[in-house]
Amino acid sequence: MKYISEFREHTLALQLANAIAQTVNPERQYRLMEFCGGHTHAIFRYGIQDLMPDNVEFIHGPGCPVCVLPTGRIDNAIQLAEQHGVILCTYADLMRVPATGRHSLLKAKANGGDIRMVYSTQDALKIARDNPARQVVFFAIGFETTTPPTAVIIRQAQAERLDNFSVFCNHVLTPAAMQAILDVPRPAASAHAPPLLIDAFLGPSHVSTVIGSQPYERFAEQYAKPIVIAGFEPLDVMQSALMLIRQLNEGRHEVENEYRRAVTPQGNLKAQALMREVFEVRPYFEWRGLGLIADSALTLKADYADFDAERHFNLPAIQAADTKGCECPAILRGVKKPQDCKLLGTVCTPENPMGSCMVSSEGACAAYWSYRRNSL
């Protein structure tokens, strides 16, 4: 294990940039989708795109768990606080995501809803223990990275017989989203709307520590797309880009693992077993920007149904539109970039977000605002 500073070393970054410049074929384009929002922020923060040749382009993907949560699920969470009177526990990023009518959990809290920000799943469980006369709901979101901690508190709640605790489950699955991105039919090219082309993927970091690198092999084979599991640091991203460029030049489409210090082919088997024990796959789940995706999210198994807030409070499925003019759905599909949104930097700012991509610490618009807003 090396220190983080070694993955941010300026001289090595320039050497990698030179290697990439020497490796690219000037006659072709390289379109690399970084699936993870952490990669997007690294690219913006460290100016990685500026170190790339003009024919190497990073395309931002749907790897931000707050961003991909549809408006209707935020509406459901607000219902829990306002109509059912629960103590709703959630992470800070979710508080400001716009719901229907520009409502939000933060506004619901200001109006008297008992909505509490937590730093971990265990915080939510403690609130339930401390308030036995109140129903406490944990608003659970995230990819495979954050799913095992949710499984742990559900098992703990069952063992302790906490009948005042439940989970509003919104955990989603990375491979299903990658499948959806690859399966979306592309429109014919035009002067105003060129088709989205993805040549290769930077595979997610933290998700892959849980699920391993093996689940991506079918995408590399079926769609002939190189995939490199990439770490979060700038040299990780640059090295992974170089590995993808080499694969494309050589006509290969394999899964390679740049992040070997944390990711194995099999992943975390103990975490996977825990997820299988507590959760099962939903037939369909709505993603912001991608629509309904089959087998793309999790729900609690029957053995843990007593801790499923969706069933306990009979929450309805809500179809809700995004804020008019917000390009967050298109950005999540990789069709547009933050600078293509007319709201960015005008009415849409971190203090007044129009869409989830400006709210989350992993959102592409938040990254653009933090590191590129002087170019607006």
Rank of each mutant, 00 (worst) to 15 (best):
S213V: 12
Q214K: 15
P215H: 11
E217K: 14
R218H: 12
F219P: 07
F219K: 05
F219E: 06
Y223I: 02
Y223V: 01
P226M: 05
I227G: 03
I227D: 02
V228T: 11
I229L: 14
A230V: 09
A230K: 09
G231W: 04
G231Y: 05
F232V: 12
F232I: 12
E233Y: 13
E233R: 01
E233T: 00
E233Q: 09
P234N: 13
L235F: 09
L235K: 09
D236A: 14
D236T: 08
Q239D: 11
S240N: 01
A241V: 15
A241K: 07
M243L: 15
M243R: 13
L244P: 01
L244S: 03
R246H: 09
L248V: 08
N249F: 02
E250G: 12
G251W: 05
R252V: 12
R252H: 15
H253E: 01
E254D: 15
V255M: 07
V255W: 08
E256F: 10
Y259Q: 06
R261V: 09
R261A: 12
R261L: 13
A262C: 14
V263Q: 04
V263M: 03
T264M: 06
Q266A: 15
Q266P: 06
G267Y: 03
N268E: 05
N268V: 03
L269H: 10
K270C: 02
Q272D: 06
A273Q: 13
M275S: 00
M275P: 02
M275D: 00
M275F: 02
E277N: 05
V278T: 06
V278W: 03
F279Y: 14
E280K: 11
R282V: 10
P283M: 04
P283A: 07
P283D: 13
Y284H: 14
Y284S: 09
F285R: 04
F285S: 12
E286W: 02
G289W: 03
G289N: 03
L290G: 00
G291M: 02
L292N: 14
L292Y: 14
L292H: 13
I293A: 01
A294R: 15
S296H: 11
S296K: 07
A297G: 08
L298S: 04
L298Q: 04
L298M: 12
L300M: 10
K301R: 15
K301M: 01
A302K: 05
A302L: 01
D303T: 04
D303Q: 13
A305V: 11
A305T: 09
D306I: 00
D306E: 13
D306C: 03
D308H: 11
D308F: 07
D308N: 14
A309H: 10
A309P: 14
A309R: 11
H312P: 00
F313P: 08
N314P: 00
P316S: 02
P316W: 03
I318A: 11
Q319E: 10
A320D: 07
A320S: 14
A321I: 05
D322G: 12
D322M: 09
D322R: 00
G325Y: 06
C326I: 11
C326F: 09
E327C: 00
C328P: 06
A330D: 12
A330M: 12
A330K: 13
R333C: 08
R333G: 08
R333T: 03
G334D: 02
V335I: 15
Q339V: 10
Q339E: 15
Q339Y: 08
D340S: 08
C341N: 07
K342A: 15
V347N: 06
C348T: 01
T349I: 05
P350Y: 01
